[in-house]
Design a protein around this nucleic acid. Structure first.
Lengths: 362, 362
DNA sequence: TAATAAAACTAACGCGCGTTAATAGTTAGC
DNA sequence: GCTAACTATTAACGCGCGTTAGTTTTATTA
């Protein structure tokens, strides 16, 4: 292992002091350095392959140049989260432009407080983004009092933390209204997750609101609660099908979960959308490729990520935005999985056309 | 912002020196501390809510307690990577047990060297895992000479770096042999990515090897190159279908890509597996839920992650493993998408049974 | 009791860098 | 030619902690 190269080495080679090296390499405008001196320094640094030590820099400047992303979910749910890559991709892209790093962490229910304190107080990071927070998260107050900025990806009513989220309620209402507009009246609902996750709550509320506006009574028997992954969607759809409830459409508050529902519906010998219309949520890349293509609410994970980062960045710079929360728009993308009630295809011909129509037009 | 709490504060409150505090909190066995003193220190730390500053600790101990994961791909490909969450999940799980952190980064072709140097020389991290490295990565030699341990997730022939990978060649051979065993002779191939990615190369080689062993001539006209995502799978499958080549099966070296191929096949008015059998690779969670369920090669991203981490950890502890590379096993999971050639279902009955059979048995 | 060993604790330095306050050098004004 | 006003540079301190070498206290032995 070769000797570590420090700024002193650069200073020596350039024939200046360490301070000058620091000024030059950090482009510190408050001090004027003669151009030829600056060039000498830069050349020396290049020649030696000098890279300032991150820890030392962080210690001296009190800035780690890292931000943290906490996923509040167990690893088994992280593994099948098709939405996560979009978030990460958006964040990494934004971070790279500011040459900051991303420190990733997950936290299981029950250990939030410890994790948050450790992460914020030990100053591993300059700012924190908390993904899919739970209503019952006991560590949230700690974050409100943390000495670094925090942005929630999601909504916690009553929290003083800044947040970025899509308008889950409106989006869900639109989705369900779409089904109602197609003539459906008995519409089941499978949530994306358990109710401590606010997105699940809000989407369920949107479902109820749409029913109410259309004068349809809410029937709790038509509601099931999934758990992020496809398997849970399969199970809950089976549960709906096995109940003697009658319904012609289902609103599934997550595409991931909806794929499981597809599977259960087919297994029961039913067809989408002839027997049951399905509307999903998230518009994952696969939504336009599965068969039948899935009507869904488009949510851009990358956009959420970028907005969260921008908000966090403003907070880190100390400029407080006027509003505590950013709400991003969504739009419904109708595809093959939803159609008018009762329009059963004639066996053979129409079914074929439905199945073979282009699967990639969104 | 409240005054930051340092180990000196803890020492003062406990009535001991800072050194003692450090010994106690780090459980340093080389020095004996009277139990009551230790308790006094711990109690003081608890009372003050003391968390050692990460940067200071890193600077003094020369250990950041972070490892880096570099994804060598552009952000647009990261976003749709359904495999990434498994990797991350596996890593985070393993890391948490050692209370280490994960620093995530992506790197675009052309900027590898800079990124690697910055990350390793600036000592942001104690060790590095490089995901899906490219054969033509100009920064690899720099990693070989880096002053921190490096593990490749993937294979680079001739590199002196340690690596973890699945046996892509054998797996692909098994998959294609499975098709050959079903009577297929004209078998197309869509790679998972461009050839600078070794996994794509190796899987293609496995395809060729299986053909060769069965005495089937390799026909380059039957090969297409996809690009990680579903869209590219759709395009390449279209290209195959539009060519006047004749084939009864296709080996798609990535489930993600295979979903796109599904879509193209349906759009062409053909059926899986009646007209074309499909075998995928990766066994993503959705493979057993799409219709028809996808025959695939099971690869556990979490296992790859954990093995990579274990290997890296050994390197960080300085104990060199006997072998440079860890090769993980795979297994073929036959599902509905592959069947004997020519067994066209009778319209109606058998088709129905194929479509409606349970979609969740793997 | 004195001599010695072991246990318990601490003073002080260094990790590498940012930054302030002070110093040397240079130009402009009269 | 001398002060004033910059400009260019540096010495030196501090960030908070790990750790070595050394000091004090307690236990053990002769």
């Amino acid at each position: 292992m070769s000797k570590r190269i420090t700024s002193q080495d650069v200073a020596d080679l350039a024939g200046v002091s360490r301070t000058t090296v620091s000024f030059v390499l950090n482009n510190d405008q408050r001090f004027s350095i003669r151009p030829e001196t600056a060039e000498k320094v830069r050349s020396a640094a290049r020649q030696l392959g000098y890279y300032p030590n991150a820890s030392a820099r962080a210690l001296a400047s009190n800035q780690t140049k890292n931000i943290g992303l906490i996923i509040s979910r167990g690893p088994q749910y992280v593994a099948s989260d098709t939405f996560l890559p979009q978030i990460i991709s958006g964040l990494l892209d934004a971070l790279k432009q500011n040459s900051q790093g991303l420190l990733l962490e997950w936290v299981e229910p029950g250990q939030q407080l410890q994790t948050y304190l450790e992460l914020t107080r030990a100053h591993h990071i300059d700012g924190l983004i908390l993904m899919t927070p739970r209503l019952d998260d006991p560590g949230l107050k700690a974050l409100e009092e943390a000495d670094i900025p925090v942005v929630l990806m999601g909504t916690i009513p009553g929290s003083s933390l800044h947040s970025v989220d899509v308008d889950n309620l409106a989006a869900a209402e639109t989705a369900v209204s779409h089904l109602i507009g197609l003539g459906h009246r008995r519409i089941a609902c499978i949530t994306n997750a358990a109710t401590p996750y606010t997105s699940a709550n809000q989407r369920l509320d949107g479902y109820k609101l749409a029913l109410q506006k259309a004068g349809i009574a809410f029937d709790p028997q038509l509601v099931r609660e999934a758990d992020f992954d496809t398997q849970s969607g399969y199970k809950q759809m089976c549960s709906l099908l096995e109940s003697d409830q009658d319904f012609s459409a289902v609103f599934v508050a997550s595409d991931n979960v909806a794929v499981g529902a597809y599977s259960a519906i087919r297994e029961a010998g039913l067809s989408i959308p002839e027997d049951i219309s399905v509307v999903g949520f998230d518009d994952i890349p696969l939504a336009s490729f599965i068969c039948p293509t899935l009507t869904s609410v488009a949510v851009s994970g990358q956009e959420i990520a970028v907005e969260s980062y921008n908000l966090l960045n403003r907070l880190m710079r100390g400029d407080l935005p006027e509003s505590r929360s950013v709400i991003l728009p969504t739009r419904l993308i109708p595809r093959q999985s939803s159609r008018e009630i009762g329009r059963r295809a004639k066996k053979g011909s129409e079914k074929k056309s439905a199945q073979f129509v282009s699967c990639v037009n969104n």
